[in-house]
Structure formats: structure tokens, C-alpha cells
Nucleic acid binder design. Structure first.
Lengths: 254, 254
DNA sequence: ATAATTTCTTGACCTATATCATTGTCCCGA
DNA sequence: TCGGGACAATGATATAGGTCAAGAAATTAT
């Protein structure tokens, strides 16, 4: 497998990212995310075809690889790390619409321009396909289409939850919801009653995701700590002594 | 065509709506929304098959026909009127996630429970399909699936816009965005420079959609009127003397 | 190591929007 | 034609969260 690391020089924050890459990735079948994302919809024979269209790319932390409004040439599948998706206003106000991790699919656009930007939160591995190639593959393998529809339906549900959060929840509830959401991302359906999470994103990212300011996020973490609802360990490590209590607060059952 | 009107008795606000209906609707081909929604994806022959699975339903104004969390048996296609979709918190706080009109599709759920509620804003006509039947049809006609994916992608873009609005826009910008959005719904791509809209929803609905209170919505309408950005005619009729100016404010280019 | 830079926390103060209260307007039914 | 109930507008006041400012901690560069 060929993995392409983009030079740091080419990736500094405000620049457009030009995705360079080898002319193919020959072993989707052995890929570490074989069971996730679009790939999970395919049989081995189909995967072989997919391989020829895919390019594996590595993006270092904190770099934009989709610019809002730019031409939507590619689709991506996250195979490692965490990505933030966002929309901005002309004066710089920003809303992060989601943090997406391994297995997630990215680049579903209606028009031929991306309606959102995407930036790596930590070092990220991506599997890149050209839109046109993926469309050809969809014709051939309807299972890909079905998988994409399922993914879109999931994202839509998440988006509706986030609208409820942004429109109607307090700062306390938003941060609790956020932490609970991270647990869901980490553990799926089977969240242990006592758990830990490592947050890869900054307070500023969390603020832009929750529609708050950095200061309010910080104060709310402090409040949750005072209330013994979380324990903040070294660095970004958060301990949650009672997941159910946290979930209740996040759902408005304070 | 058989149209079923539900008795007012059976539809009072807090009750569960049980959708009664005739055992089929035989003329999708002649349907007034033939060119919209799922139907537009189908050839005449396919429509004939779809007809057998569809039931046309009329819901009077202000009645819930999908209850949040109830079993997701059906899909709907809006063929007349405006529907509001919403999510609620246990204490009654509510977020309207969208107003959907003719041609829109409704009921895409990940699990077997609806993640949202749906209520008619005005009298509404719906085309109802059972989930299982639609799944069978999707197997047979991949074009339906493609159409649904396109619809989901569109909704996702709208949801991201709404997250930006809820997380980062001022009340002034929110109301301007909302009015502009109504123009897009009414005119599509070709919005005239001077336009009018008739809002079928109440100030309370607008507030729940924009993450504001009724009072703030009302005050903001008054402010927009003072600024000559809108003219409020008789009833719910809004006149917009400069669509571009309104759009600029809604996009944060005050 | 140590300086430089970014991120985080906390305090003091402020403002946009929420809340509470009142009055006015529209509609529909008797 | 009147009366009642929903809807809307507006004023007075409160407050959650924003803004500004400063210092502490963590991270990165030299």
C-alpha cells in the first residue's frame, strides 16, 4: 500500500490543500477499515475494483483539505484520525457541523461545490476517490449506493440532534451532550457505566461545535468538574464517573 | 384517486394519529406531484407499481401525524401543504428542524423508530408508503434509491446551513435567513429581485425553528419593518422590496 | 533547557435575548 | 354582533452567555 504524506510546507493553515497521491491503492481488502464505511458494503471482488479508484492520503494535524465552496472533485473515507467539518460566515464566525472519525464518509455534495470545509483535528488518514469514478462504481454496485444512503440517514439524524442542541439547550447541557456523543463515537452501543475519553480537539473547536465561546466552554468544564460529573486528568483526558448522569443532563433531564 | 380525510375527532393535538386510508391509489401517473419527490425518479411502468403501494392521505392543519420515537412503519411524500418536523426535550422545549413542502420526502429513519415528530402547518396532502414495500421497490428500481440519496444529500446541506444559523447568527440574521429560505422554497433558483411570501406558520413555529422566543421573533419583524427590509401586509403576507439586501443580511454581510 | 507561542482558565463587566406582563388584533362560532 | 380564544406586538426587567483582560499551563521551537 502506498501512503502519501503531504509536505508541511504545502499545508499551512490558510492555504488550499492540493491533494497529491499515488495512482492507486492496491489492497482495500487488507485495509484496516475494511469493515467500516463504504468498503463494508462490498464483496472482495468489488473491493478489487474499488482499489483502483482509491488513493490513500495522510494529512497532518490542523490542516484544511476541503475548502468551503471549492470544486467538489473527490469523495473521502476517513481511515484514521478525526476530521472536523465546518461552515463559516464572511466575518469569520464559524460553526463546526461535526467531528467525524474512522469509517465515516465525507464529500456528499448536491452541487459541484463543497458546501462545507474540512480540516484534520489530529493526523488523519483518508481514502480518496474521484466523484466521477465513484458514480461509475455506484452504477455497477448498487450496494455502495445503499451504504451511502444509510450513512446519509445517520448523519441526518445526528444533524437534527445537533439542531436541538444549538437551538434549545443550555451551555451545561451542550457540553454534557458533547461528552456523551464522544462516548458514543468511541464505544458505539455498548458504553460502560464509567468511562474515559481522550478529546483530540481544542476548546475553540468544541466552542465552534456547540455554538458557544471558548470561555463558556472552559467555565462549563470547570463547573462539571466541581459537580463531580467529570474528572479532568492530564491533558485532554476526561474521566466520566457516571455516564448515565451525564447523559441525563445532556438530554435535558437535569 | 381516493383521498382520505381524517376525522377531526381522531386528530386532536396531543393524540397519536392513526393513519387510516384506502387500500391504494391508482393514478400516480396523473398525480399533481408527478414531477417531484420520489415519483420523479420513475418511468410510467414503475409508477404503476408504486401506485399499488401508495395511499393518499389528507391531514387538517395543526395535527401531528408522526410522533417522535414511535415505530417507523411508513414513508411519506408531501403532495400538498407544509409540514413541520421537530425534536423535543423532556421539559417541552422544542426545535423545529425543518418546514417541508410539496415534493419533499419524509420518514428516512435509521432505526425502526422515528427520530423526529411531524405536524401539519396547514392542511396537508400526503402520499404514504409502507417502509417494507418501499424497500422492495428500491431493490427493483435503483432509481428510487438514487433519488432518495439525492434528497438526503440536499437535506444534509440544509441541516448544515441551519446549524450555522442556530450556532452563530444573530436574531436579525436568523429572521432574514428564514425569510430568504422561504423565497427559495417558493421560487427555487429564480427568485425575483422584489418578491412576496405568504407565511403559513405562526410566530411560535418560526421561533422554534430559529432557536428564539416568540417575542424576539416579533420584535425582529418589527425592526425589519422599521428598516424597510420587509413590508408586513394583511395577515401573514410579507413583502420584500429588496431580496438581495435581505439575503445579504441573512448571510452575515450586514 | 529555555524562550516563544498557543491553549486554557478565571475574573469583571456588558449586552443580546429571555422572561414576565399587558394590551391589541384577528378570527370563528353562537 | 358580540364574545371568547388564539395569535401578535410591545414595554419593563432579568440573566445566560458574550466580551475584554490577565495570568497560568501546556506545547513547540531554538
Amino acid at each position: 500500500m502506498s501512503t502519501v504524506s503531504l509536505s508541511d510546507q504545502a499545508l499551512r493553515r490558510p492555504r488550499r490543500l492540493v491533494l497529491a497521491g499515488m495512482e492507486g491503492c492496491t489492497n482495500c481488502a487488507a485495509c484496516e477499515v475494511r469493515g467500516h464505511g463504504v468498503c463494508s458494503a462490498l464483496a472482495d471482488k468489488e473491493l478489487e475494483r474499488l482499489s483502483r479508484a482509491a488513493v490513500k492520503v495522510t494529512v497532518p494535524a490542523g490542516h484544511m483539505f476541503i475548502e468551503e465552496g471549492s470544486d467538489a472533485h473527490d469523495f473521502f473515507n476517513v481511515t484514521g484520525g478525526t476530521v472536523k467539518l465546518f461552515k463559516s460566515l464572511p466575518d469569520g464566525r464559524r460553526q463546526i457541523t461535526g467531528f467525524v472519525g474512522v469509517g465515516h464518509f465525507l464529500g456528499l455534495a448536491v452541487s459541484d461545490h463543497y458546501a462545507f470545509g474540512a480540516e484534520s483535528v489530529e493526523q488523519v488518514q483518508l481514502c480518496r476517490f474521484s466523484r466521477t469514478k465513484l458514480e461509475t462504481l455506484m452504477e455497477e454496485f448498487p450496494s455502495i449506493e445503499r451504504r451511502l444512503l444509510a450513512e446519509a440517514a445517520n448523519e441526518l439524524v445526528a444533524a437534527q440532534d445537533q439542531m436541538l442542541l444549538l437551538g434549545r439547550k443550555t451551555a451545561h447541557e451542550r457540553v454534557a451532550s458533547f461528552l456523551y456523543g464522544r462516548l458514543v463515537e468511541k464505544y458505539g452501543e455498548h458504553i460502560p457505566p464509567v468511562a474515559d475519553i481522550l478529546l483530540p480537539m481544542t476548546r475553540a473547536d468544541i466552542a465552534d461545535f456547540l455554538g458557544l465561546t471558548v470561555e463558556t466552554v472552559s467555565r462549563t468544564f470547570s463547573r462539571l468538574r466541581r459537580e463531580h460529573l467529570i474528572g479532568v486528568g492530564a491533558g485532554q483526558d476526561i474521566h466520566i464517573p457516571s455516564v448515565s448522569r451525564l447523559e441525563a443532563i445532556g438530554s435535558g433531564d437535569g
